[in-house]
Nucleic acid binder design. Structure first.
Lengths: 333, 333
DNA sequence: ATGAAAGCGCTAACAT
DNA sequence: ATGTTAGCGCTTTCAT
């Protein structure tokens, strides 16, 4: 900026004002300076500006990763959320700082805020870190989490309506004549627990109860889903449908069923969750519960910005929708 | 920092030194100050530090998006690269600023550098922006691109070996008895052009020539691939295999073949490209050319850091590998 | 309409 | 071993 001032024969103050479009500076000078800046590929130094103005237009987006399992989040659904956040933040003029953070040490998320790098944190996935998240919030880190509402939470969550999602999927299967529906997912995770509740509710509405034999507890990991389904089938338990808690799991389930000679949907119906892009191209195309990804980004960002302004933002649950495709078939009851 | 200095009864300089682990400060004081900082949730202000030190530990990662088609990049492969970059950058102590940028106006990528927000730019996907990228490089923006080597390029590319990939896929199909192999992809894109060269080379080695009738030109978009394949089939052209330039395209191709009564692999073999997670769970599991995603992140980051240091980094082509699964079948020649 | 000067939070000579 | 001071690049009050 000093360079420009010298070249333009004015003071840095004038350059600063000109580049910020101040009306105080004559239009002529303003344009001359703008031109000069362009030809020099000059852009205002954002750090210095922020420092002086005590402002900041960066939001940290954090993807926890599990150090134990060395598992890097690669679920397309979460990556899609990242994309959606990138859009929503760009639209509102914010920059996005993306970090992977050790799930056991979410404190480093606080660092992103305390060090002034970001005005707040959006964390993708609640997992089992409810307590850690509460601690972060208690330490006044503005934080919003993609997940589900928990009792006594100090942080704001935004997430799909998991109970409704579980209900939609299960009721659909029941209406199509299924009676023994396998549940694939890890009910230790809050979101999955809610989906399980929806599953149980829908069964109850049909006068049925959730059968523990039909539970395949597994994290969001295709390999574990394959293993779990294989064990289930080998155990000889009868079932006519599967509700999987993510499309990735559903994909693994369908593959396993196919391998073990149970055609989908003729022999077993399958419903997934998320409606990632792939679900519509799978074979057969997957019936699934669509989460509103686009909206998710917008709502997460809105909630964070409100939190930053000091508002107490209440958790938000977004509507989900059943997308019926070919993986669920009508069958005689 | 001033607060801490006051509370500790020392000067800010001492606090600064203490927090940076200077040996000049007595261990006792250092620990007292560290404790104080912890209890106050204090972290050094990174902007101020960077400003003072004229340093910066942020790298911009840019995903161009096509404004015309309003298409937001959602291809799992590119998102996986983002994940891989996040890991590689974290490992090296860099932060990642993720931006979506209008593909027609890549200049805004220069802004990320000129404004001091990032020390350089990693751009995911070369698309048709060779000239724009050259301009960026000419303007001295440190930039590395995931893509393929072009004549007279001023910027550094890192990418899979596309010619080899095309060859591997095609030769495999030929060896399994296929003779009329459809090519699905947009040869206007440099990477796809190279894969097409590999395809042609492999055919030539078998005494065959690429048949223009067997080309389904389409961008990385599942819908267009479906439309293109449908047209091809309806035109009545005979073919016994398909080489699709991404797994997403292959997925769409398999679905279309299935719908139109051409079972994979019995009637038609299919090879994809990328080896995204899904490829191994598809039905049937997809034979595909694996790109080294993990390595990609590392190499991109290495190349950028070298570029930042002023080195002239030559383009790098990473080895690819054929992963044979069930979508390609032995057939009688 | 423009300039001079102070200060954002930090670090590194240069004292002591 | 610690304090004083100047300055990173910018904005803004206060002068002119």
């Amino acid at each position: 900026m000093a360079d420009i001032a010298r070249l333009a024969g004015v003071s840095v103050a004038t350059v600063s004002r000109a580049l910020n479009g101040s009306e105080l500076i004559s239009k002529e000078t303003r344009e001359r300076i703008a031109e000069l800046a362009r030809s020099l590929d000059y852009s205002i130094n954002v750090s210095a500006k922020n420092l002086r103005l005590k402002q900041n237009h960066t939001v940290a987006v954090v993807i926890p990763y599990d150090k134990a399992s060395r598992q890097h989040v690669s679920d397309p659904f979460f990556l899609a959320i990242v994309g959606s956040l990138a859009d929503a933040l760009t639209d509102r003029g914010f920059d996005m700082l993306l970090s992977r953070v050790d799930a056991d040490n979410l404190d480093s998320a606080a660092h992103l805020y305390n060090s002034g790098m970001a005005i707040g944190v959006i964390l993708i996935g609640q997992w089992r870190h409810h307590d850690q998240l509460n601690q972060l919030a208690a330490r006044r880190v503005p934080i919003v989490v993609w997940g589900t509402q928990m009792p006594q939470q100090l942080y704001c969550t935004v997430g799909g309506d998991n109970v409704a999602g579980g209900q939609l999927a299960t009721r659909h299967l029941l209406e199509r004549g299924a009676r023994r529906i396998v549940f694939v997912g890890d009910p230790q995770l809050p979101e999955v627990a809610h989906r399980f509740k929806g599953y149980s509710d829908a069964l109850a509405a049909f006068g049925l109860a959730a059968d523990p034999l039909l539970a395949v507890p597994c994290p969001f990991d295709a390999n574990e889903a394959r293993a779990g389904m294989t064990r289930l089938i080998e155990s000889g338990v009868e079932f006519d449908a599967v509700f999987a808690c993510s499309d990735v799991l559903a994909s693994a389930v369908m593959q396993t069923l196919h391998l073990l000679g149970k055609p989908v949907p003729q022999s077993v119906s399958v419903v997934g969750y998320d409606d990632i892009e792939w679900a519509s191209h799978s074979n057969p195309p997957l019936t699934t519960v669509r989460q509103p990804i686009r909206q998710a980004g917008v709502e997460l960002v809105d909630a964070l910005l409100l939190t930053v302004e000091g508002a107490a933002v209440s958790p938000r649950s977004l509507p989900v929708e059943l997308i019926v495709r070919d993986s669920t078939l009508h069958r005689a009851p």
